Simulated assay, not measured.
Amino acid sequence: MSLDLFETVFKETFVLNDKRKRVGNYSLGRVIGRGAFGTVRLGTHLLSGENAAVKVVPKKSILQKDKARRRFARELHALKQMDHPNIVCLKEWMETERNFYLVLTYINGDTLKHYLNDVKRLSENEARRYINQMTSALNYMHSQNFLHRDIKLENTVLQSGGKVFIVDFGLSVDVSFLENPNMCGSPTYMAPEILLKHGITLSADIWSLGICLCYLVTGCHPYHMSFKDNYATLYFKILQGSTLPNFLSEECRDLIQRMLSVDPYNRISTEEILAHAWLERIIS
């Protein structure tokens, strides 16, 4: 997304008032999250009373930093294209003299990472329900030619009732415009081809999803990686391989192994995951 388009999008939605507790048609309440560039506040629509998550991004935090500006522009561009029940929805966007505002779906829940920290590991049936939804969201993203590039448990929010949402599109990119891709994402979720700087395809998201699945059903990273490991160490651990525990079903082990194929061209696709025998055994 070019800077010109970035500026044009917000020029159409300029809001004169920049009161601390209100923007546009939303009153702003407590802080419900913090990100790299700003805060997320609970918003309430003044007419409908509907809640929303309002991301408040101070202009000074991004406009003078090229990398930050590009990341914010990518997030806005991607969110505008998304329309899926398991992807956070961008309702509207606004600009004042001081801030940019993204009005997003309010999700009353916590990340899968926090949930897993509490329960240690999930039953295969519970994990199936979450992986099925995450795969459906990825399948939609990929059909729109978008690569998320940061799929992880920390970027998946679990709502009461068992619905999950993929969030944080700051690293997402339209693969049609992906030239000389930089290494980005969360290192312990990175596909090996990214660690080697061998280019990137949509299947990189599948690798990250496979790491998520392994975490959910075992409580551990399949390659026992640490955020302290450098890229060479991470790749060496992948080459050493992993042994999945015997308490997992044969279908679950097969799916994880196919998602974590070191060769991206042999990696299972989102369509194949959705048709896999393991996901066919979902029990509501």
Results as ranks from 00 to 15, higher is better:
Arg30Thr: 15
Glu97Phe: 09
Gln81Lys: 14
Ala127Val: 03
Ala52Ile: 14
Met190Gln: 09
Gln159Val: 03
Val9Gln: 08
Asp174Trp: 00
Ser186Trp: 07
Tyr115His: 15
Leu216Met: 15
Val23Tyr: 00
Arg30Asp: 13
Glu75Asp: 10
His198Phe: 10
Ser242His: 12
Phe177Lys: 14
Glu250Leu: 05
Gly185Val: 03
Arg70Gly: 04
Arg129Lys: 14
Ser172Thr: 09
Leu153Lys: 06
Asp254Met: 04
Thr96His: 11
Phe236His: 13
Ser284Arg: 14
Lys55Glu: 12
Leu102Ala: 08
Phe6Ser: 04
Lys59Ile: 08
Thr218Lys: 05
Phe165Glu: 09
Asn108Tyr: 04
Val103Gly: 00
Ile151Gln: 03
Asn266Lys: 12
Ile256Glu: 00
Ala53His: 06
Met134Lys: 01
Lys120Asp: 14
His276Trp: 02
Val88Leu: 06
Val217Cys: 07
Ser176Gly: 02
Ile268Pro: 00
Arg22Ser: 10
Met94Cys: 04
Ser249Leu: 04
Asn25Arg: 09
Gly199Lys: 03
Leu178Thr: 05
Leu90Asp: 10
Glu95Ile: 05
Glu124Cys: 12
Ala204Tyr: 02
Phe236Met: 11
His114Cys: 11
His77Tyr: 14
Lys80Ala: 10
Gly49Leu: 07
Asp229Arg: 00
Gly109Phe: 10
Leu63Asn: 12
Gln257Trp: 04
Pro245His: 00
Leu138Cys: 03
Val40Phe: 02
Phe177His: 11
Val119Gly: 13
Gly161Glu: 03
Ser172Arg: 01
Leu196Ile: 14
Cys89Gln: 15
Leu63Trp: 15
Met82Ile: 12
Leu46Ala: 03
Thr96Val: 11
Ala53Asp: 12
Asp254Asn: 14
Leu260Trp: 00
Gln133Gly: 04
Asp254Thr: 13
Cys184Leu: 04
Leu196His: 05
Leu195Ser: 07
Leu47Trp: 10
Asp83Tyr: 07
Val9Thr: 05
Gly210Trp: 10
Asn17Ser: 15
Thr111Phe: 08
Asn132Trp: 03
Pro264Thr: 01
Asn86Tyr: 07
Ile211Ser: 05
Val217Ser: 09
Trp207Ser: 00
Arg98Thr: 09
Glu50Ile: 11
Met141Gln: 07
Leu42Trp: 06
Leu63Gly: 02
Ala53Ser: 13
Ala275Thr: 13
Lys237Glu: 05
Lys120Gly: 04
Val15Met: 06
Thr105Lys: 06
Arg41Ile: 13
Ser269Trp: 01
Val103Asn: 00
Asn117Glu: 12
Pro192Asp: 02
Trp207Tyr: 05
Ala78Ile: 13
Ile62Cys: 11
Leu102His: 08
Val23Lys: 04
Arg253Leu: 01
Phe236Glu: 12
Ser242Asn: 08
Ala277Lys: 12
Val167Pro: 09
Asn108Thr: 05
Ala191Met: 04
Cys214Asp: 02
Met1His: 12
Glu95Asn: 07
Asn145Arg: 09
Val217Arg: 08
Lys228Phe: 06
Arg70Glu: 15
Ala68Asn: 15
Lys120Trp: 13
His142Leu: 00
Arg281Thr: 13
Gly161Asn: 05
Tyr265Arg: 06
Asn125Pro: 13
Asp150Pro: 06
Gln144Ser: 02
